[in-house]
C-alpha cells in the first residue's frame, strides 16, 4: 500500500509532490474566487459576492467572539487558515490525496501559529513580562514551560495530520475491500463501490475536515488570546 504523497515532477533535487501541486491549485482557486466576488460589487449582494460576504462576516463574528475586540486584525489569517485547511482536507471527495495528510503541509502552518502566539505574547506583555510569565510559578519552571510551549505546534500539526491520514487509510481499505468483494461475485466492474461508501465519505471527507480546520483555527485563536492577557499581580 502506497501511503506517501506521489512525486509529480522534480527540478534538480527539489521534489514537487502532490501536496505542493494541490496546495497551489487550491490557493489559485481561492484567489480566483476572491477576485470574482469582489469585482462589480452590488449594494444588494448575490451570487459569489453573497457567498464571500457570508464567509467574511462569519469569520469576523467568530474571531471577535473568541478573542474579543483585539481579534479584528487576526481575522484575515484565521479566515485563510480555515478555508485552506478545510478545502485541503476535503480533496478526498475528488479521489485526490488530501494535502493535510502530509506533515510537510501541517507542520509549517502550525509553526506560523506558534511564531504568531509568541510574537504577540512578547508584544503585549513586554520581554520582562513574557519571561516572568514563563518563569511562573517558580523560576526553575522556565525550561518546563518552554517544553510545554514547544509541544503546542507539534500537537497542532499531528492532530490534523493524524485525523485526515487515518481517514485516507480507512477509505483506501474500504474501497479496495469493496472492489475485491465485487470481483469475488464474478463481476469485472466494482459495482459495490457505488453508494456503499457514501456515509464514510461524508464522515471522513466532509465532517472531519470541517471539524479539524475549525479546531486548528480555534486553538490558534485561543492561545493567541491567552498569550496576550497581562497578569494582574
Amino acid at each position: 500500500m502506497e501511503v506517501g504523497p506521489r512525486i509529480i515532477f522534480s527540478i534538480g533535487s527539489v521534489n514537487f509532490t502532490e501536496t505542493v501541486i494541490f496546495g497551489w491549485i487550491i490557493s489559485i482557486i481561492i484567489l480566483i474566487f476572491a477576485f470574482c466576488a469582489t469585482r462589480n460589487m452590488q449594494r444588494v449582494p448575490k451570487g459569489a459576492q453573497l457567498l464571500g460576504e457570508l464567509l467574511v462576516g462569519f469569520m469576523y463574528k467568530m474571531v471577535k467572539d473568541t478573542m474579543g475586540e483585539i481579534g479584528e486584525k487576526f481575522t484575515p489569517y484565521m479566515g485563510t487558515l480555515i478555508v485552506f485547511l478545510g478545502f485541503g482536507s476535503m480533496l478526498g471527495l475528488l479521489e485526490l490525496r488530501p494535502i493535510t495528510a502530509d506533515l510537510n503541509c501541517t507542520g509549517p502552518l502550525a509553526l506560523i501559529s506558534f511564531i504568531m502566539i509568541h510574537y504577540n505574547s512578547i508584544r503585549a506583555r513586554g520581554f520582562i513580562g513574557y519571561n516572568k510569565h514563563m518563569a511562573s510559578p517558580y523560576l526553575w519552571m522556565w525550561p518546563l514551560n518552554l517544553m510545554s510551549e514547544c509541544m503546542f505546534p507539534i500537537t497542532l500539526a499531528c492532530r490534523i495530520f493524524g485525523n485526515i491520514f487515518a481517514g485516507v487509510i480507512v477509505m483506501t481499505l474500504v474501497y479496495s475491500g469493496l472492489e475485491t468483494a465485487s470481483h469475488a461475485l464474478g463481476s469485472p466492474i466494482p459495482f459495490f463501490q457505488i453508494g456503499f461508501p457514501l456515509p464514510l465519505n461524508f464522515w471522513f471527507d466532509m465532517f472531519e475536515p470541517i471539524l479539524q480546520a475549525y479546531i486548528f483555527t480555534m486553538l490558534t485563536m485561543v492561545f493567541i488570546a491567552t498569550g496576550r492577557t497581562v497578569d494582574e499581580d
Binding site: 499531528c158 495530520f161 493524524g162 487515518a166 486553538l219
Partner: peptide, 17 residues
C-alpha cells in the same frame, strides 16, 4: 467541548502516528 475534545484526542493521535 470541541476544544476539550481536541486536546484530549492528542494522546490518541500520537499513538496513531
Amino acid at each position: 467541548m470541541l476544544i476539550g475534545v481536541a486536546l484530549t484526542e492528542t494522546a490518541g493521535i500520537f499513538a496513531l502516528v
